[in-house]
């Protein structure tokens, strides 16, 4: 494809980077990224991916926009309250960058639909807010051999890691099993500073962009934690536990997906 003058202007700050150039911008145009969850993490991630000119972005979420979402979910606005999140997100994304094709999926992912959904995409962003779905996304991405970015936020803290097939630990290698339902607070029980979602969701978009460009180092085999109160970023090297992992190990016991119990809150 040839760039129009308008596209050259829009993406000029990318194109003039030697790590991107016209070739890299074309890679971004040809890429397909799926954002699961249009909330505190998915909103900033989807907006930066859109602004960057990722050619096709899928966004999956079954919820509607609530007023309490707007403190952090910056892809939605006050007039969107009550609207399907995927529709509200699509409108913002198309207004931001008409070059991008937005596919909406007004669903919660589950063991029946997730594998087919992610098959169409090159990179997956986990922007969900609950452990059962995080494990589901991990297991599905391992089984389908899809790279993805895991992230979580709570209070003043956030964390993320990147999984690329055959390149270091998966989420299950590190966290093993879904914790008991009452062992962890949901977002309705615990607050979160909206900007923490902005920090971590933006880092997820950055990981997707680097993966597509094939430049730099990814957070594979590492977990990055962020504490906003102390302003500490810590990059923790993960043990390569893959040979014993139930899903990505050499003798996996998880070879197909099951539905974990869904917690009540899907707000982040």
């Amino acid at each position: 494809m040839a760039f129009t003058n308008e596209q050259i202007e829009r993406y000029s700050r990318h194109i003039i980077l030697s790590e991107v150039g016209a070739k890299g911008q074309k890679k971004l145009f040809n890429a397909r990224v799926l954002v699961i969850g249009a909330g505190g993490l998915g909103a900033p991630a989807a907006m930066y991916l859109t602004a960057a000119g990722i050619g096709t972005i899928g966004i999956a979420d079954a919820d509607e926009v609530e007023l309490s979402n707007l403190q952090r979910q910056i892809i939605h606005t006050t007039k969107d309250v009550g609207k399907a999140k995927v529709l509200s997100a699509k409108e913002t994304m198309e207004a931001l960058n008409p070059d991008v094709r937005v596919n909406t999926y007004r669903i919660f992912v589950n063991s029946q639909n997730i594998r087919e959904l992610i098959r169409d995409y090159d990179f997956i962003i986990d922007g969900t807010d609950n452990f059962p779905t995080k494990f589901l996304i991990n297991d599905a991405c391992v089984l389908e051999k899809k790279p993805f970015s895991h992230a979580g936020i709570i209070r003043f803290q956030g964390q993320l890691m990147t999984y690329v097939p055959d390149k270091g630990a998966c989420y299950r290698c590190v966290f093993r099993e879904v914790p008991p339902k009452d062992a962890v607070p949901t977002c309705k029980q615990a607050g979160v500073i909206g900007a923490v979602g902005g920090v971590i969701g933006s880092l997820q978009a950055m990981e997707a962009i680097k993966y597509i460009l094939g430049t730099g180092e990814l957070l594979t085999g590492s977990l990055l934690t962020y504490d906003a109160l102390t302003m500490n970023f810590r990059k923790v090297k993960l043990p390569s536990n893959t040979c014993h992992c139930a899903v990505c190990g050499s003798h996996p016991t998880i070879t197909e997906l099951i539905n974990y119990e869904q917690t009540e809150c899907n707000g982040i």
Partner: peptide, 9 residues
């Protein structure tokens, strides 16, 4: 910066 971007392309 589109001048330089166009040149680079």
């Amino acid at each position: 910066p589109a001048t330089f971007a166009k040149t680079m392309i």
